[in-house]
Amino acid sequence: MYPQTKPQTAREAGLIQCRTCAGLSHPPAVLGKHEVMRCPRCGAKLRLHEHNNSIEVTWALLIASALLYIPANTLPVMSYYSLGAGQPDTILSGVFRLLGSGQWPLALIVFAASIVVPLMKLITLTFLLISIQRKSHWRQLDRMRLYKITEHVGRWSMVDVFVIAILTGLVQFGNMARVEANSGSFSFAAVVVLTMFAAKTLDGHLIWDITRQEERDK
């Protein structure tokens, strides 16, 4: 069921739309440089379109997480000590260990959540940023869906951090058997958190807004 109205966006109507509660409001006539505009309904900060720095902030977060992606995958995330002998595992070698012990469904889950998802997030966000900056007309609806998926799926990468925490908390039998967390888990969690922030700061409306602007310029 579609409520019918002329095709028009909030921005074209001269309104500001709150990204938290979707409430509409009129921008003030004058806004000082250090004044903060707040949504009259929910109190969240509002930003004029001209002050939208979503692209720059997202790039910064994306580059930081791409750099951290390297130690996250090369450093060991946890070690299993049994009778004094340690056995460090990276994310990938942990997946192979699961595969080796015949737990392939589990190996698949961990592989998807810990390796595919963060990598796909980095690639997808880069692609979206470039396509927005090039003011691309190409398949906006699909790109918006891609953005929504990226935004929602990111948190599941935390599963490996939780597994490490549970194993470390549970397997503490002194010299007999012991699990220890390693520095790779910190880099890995940082990648997850930073890409989550990156997905959040990227403004999905830009996929559509720029097209409209370009249409008017023609």
């Binding site: 109205t5 028009q8 109507a13 918006m144």
Partner: peptide, 13 residues
């Protein structure tokens, strides 16, 4: 009016 939270399109409620 109701604006779409995802793309900004305006609709009448």
């Amino acid at each position: 009016c109701v604006a779409c939270q995802e793309c900004g399109q305006l609709h009448r409620y």
